[in-house]
Design a binder for these strands. Structure first.
Lengths: 203, 203
DNA sequence: GGCAGCCTCCGTACCAGTACGTATTTTTTA
DNA sequence: TAAAAAATACGTACTGGTACGGAGGCTGCC
């Protein structure tokens, strides 16, 4: 029903060719297998059986050149993020007009991404969490020197190598290393690296 | 000059109070030190001396409650990403209208983020790279057992502990560990953990 | 049946990191 | 300027990972 609706909706757009359609996940995968010309897969996130996210992931895994455009009623952050993580290239709300939908398809086909305005808002709102949020980080901060040492550790330098690099004694490096382990409450370099990554001190 | 222009521009917005102004980075930091009531710092990315990104970082480090709104002529991805990474909460182009600028200030003051439309586009375009890009990951896959071992290593288990946990010999764990190091091309457990995190095998 | 890949196990040797204690100099902060 | 924090440095001892080489059993596939 919905599939047919979209088909009718896009009929006037003469540059868009609907080459196939399917009613659930497995069917979609089967269709893709026999239709090498598909460039964009437009799919309803809320489908029977296999979830839209799973299907997205499956498509991306088997046909990396097929761009996935997701159609959904909701735009909460968790869902949108999941779709992106699964490899979705666009996310359009079901309230979108024909004009918006066709624009989205063209954008996605062209290698770009497309997000409905509300979806984009959601994403940007959450960039805050990813990159710009005030982090109430109330643990003992690492000193400048310690952070520096940590950089080298993360690059798999040995204590001796670090010492030579910084023109200090190996013993000093050992001490810094000990303090790092204590401050990050890790038993070994393993926890240290995880701490560093979590706190975006490296990579 | 620019500072004065913005001041005049925002004068009609009666709910916004300009409590201080500065002409370069160090001056801004000094002003902040003496003005505890500042909630939003509006700064030109292209300033003399200290770069806007540096100033952003400095502000976030010393006054985590001050929200930084950046004003810039450009919106290339590298620059925007840098600002975000430094802790900026918003990014407005200099072509913005008074209405947009005041909206941005209010959004940022309210704990949200704000990005001019073009900037938002740039960001969304690059989400593709962050989250939806096809990753040609053509390295030897880890076996089930190896992944299992890796989980324990990430949790800071020693070889002996892993052995006991899995009812196998410590030697076997050592061998798996060696194979893991080889497959991930890392010199030590340091690289191993980074590999695991990058490939979402842990945490 | 044979081959490949995985999981299992052993020994020897070495080195790097870790634990713990102590102490001086330099820099920052109160 | 005194106190606190950071950076510097040393010694001893021990543990745990790493390098290297070898080997047998099991499963699944051609």
């Amino acid at each position: 029903m919905i599939v047919e609706g979209i088909r009718q909706m896009l009929r006037p757009e003469t540059d868009l060719h609907i080459v196939a359609q399917a009613h659930d996940g497995p069917q979609a995968l089967a269709v893709l297998a026999s239709q090498p010309s598909v460039r964009v897969a437009l799919l309803d996130l809320n489908m029977p059986g296999m979830s839209g996210v799973e299907l997205t992931r499956a498509i991306r895994a088997d046909w990396p050149d097929v761009r996935v455009l997701v159609l959904s009623m909701f735009h909460d952050h968790a869902t949108v993020a999941e779709v992106l993580e699964a490899g979705g290239a666009g996310y359009v709300l079901k309230t979108a007009s024909r004009a918006e939908l066709s624009t989205a398809i063209r954008q996605v086909a062209g290698g770009n991404t497309y997000f409905s305005a509300e979806v984009a808002d959601t994403l940007l709102q959450n960039l805050q969490i990813l990159a710009a949020s005030p982090q109430p980080d109330q643990r003992p901060a690492l000193t400048r020197r310690e952070q520096e040492i940590l950089q080298f550790i993360a690059r798999e330098y040995s204590n001796l190598q670090i010492a030579e690099e910084l023109f200090i004694s190996e013993r000093t490096v050992e001490t810094h290393r000990r303090n790092l382990l204590a401050k990050t409450e890790s038993k070994s370099v393993v926890g240290l690296i995880q701490y560093a990554i979590r706190h975006k001190l490296i990579s």
